[in-house]
Amino acid sequence: MSTDFQSGREALGARLRELRVESGLSGKEFAECVGWPPSKVSRLQGGKQTPSHADLEAWAAAAGRPEAVGELKARVAGLETTYRSWKRQLVQGHRARQEQGIAETAATRLIRGVEVVRVPGLLQTPDYARRVFEQAAEFRQTPRDVDAAVRARVRRQEALYDPDKRFEFVIHETALHARTSPAAVHAAQLDRLMGVIGLDTVRLGIIPLGAQLRRAPSHGFWIYDRRLVIVETIGTEMWLADEASVELYERSWDWLTESAVHGEKAQRLIGRVRSLLGAA
């Protein structure tokens, strides 16, 4: 988990402890007051657990400070604005998050995306996207609204044909080989990648497996204009809007782009991987 996130959670825990101490109650007495095990009070005060809104309301009431609820909720909102739990985002399935993607794309003139082990969502075929959503729902144990999520992802791709927008992608060759779907689906996805290279709104770069790198790509990320960076982890999605983070990821983008091939070279590289699948 991010150091910044953990620091923020520890600061919130310190504030909760302060309110509890001011109430004159010991940790055990406070736990009895709210009907929790003492271990939960300890975890919240120590910044080891993120409190829910209901937890904060109960805490403020037990401390005799109901007016502090607004402040406490604002602190949690600040954490969740940057670090968004997949569990919470996908509570109703993937469609809602895809609708967010449509809105962010509509508000952006230049989108730059890096992917290491899979094809970017904006370039996915419906069948490939369906496999991505099915696997994500199974792994994260979230509702399976796969068809609705695929339709939303395809709607988002309409932006690729907007002459007022620009899309730049860098994909590591690993993503071309990573098989998360049947051969026929994977082959059609590679065909799709070769086809988008001709779009005047899209610039697609492929980093060959043997390319010399200034820095290895540790994970994928997306830059929306110069206002937002989105990074996906297994448990959370980070939305980073501070200037330092944007500059850091732009530097990573620049360094990775140096090692990528474009145009006909990229097409030939994709074609070589496609040929391994035969007539699929």
Rank of each mutant, 00 (worst) to 15 (best):
D4K: 12
A11V: 09
G13W: 01
E22Q: 14
S23E: 12
K28N: 11
E32P: 00
V34P: 00
W36K: 05
R43E: 13
L44R: 06
G46D: 12
G46A: 15
G47A: 05
P51V: 10
A54I: 08
E57F: 10
A58V: 01
A60I: 02
A62L: 02
A68T: 13
A74H: 07
G78Y: 03
T82R: 09
Y83L: 03
K87H: 12
Q89I: 05
Q92G: 11
H94D: 07
V114F: 01
V116L: 08
P120G: 11
P120K: 11
L123G: 04
Q124A: 08
T125W: 11
R131T: 11
V132P: 01
V132A: 11
E134H: 10
Q135D: 15
A136W: 13
E138R: 15
R144D: 12
A149K: 09
R156F: 08
R156N: 09
A159S: 14
A159G: 08
D162K: 02
P163E: 03
H177T: 05
A178S: 13
P182K: 03
A188W: 11
L190E: 00
V196G: 04
V202G: 02
G210D: 12
Q212D: 12
A216R: 06
P217C: 03
F221N: 03
I223Y: 00
R226V: 08
R226Q: 11
V229G: 02
V229D: 00
I230G: 03
E237M: 06
E237Y: 00
E243K: 15
S245Y: 04
V246I: 14
V246A: 00
E250P: 01
E250H: 08
S259H: 02
R268W: 04
I270D: 00
R274H: 05
L276E: 15
L277V: 05
A279M: 14
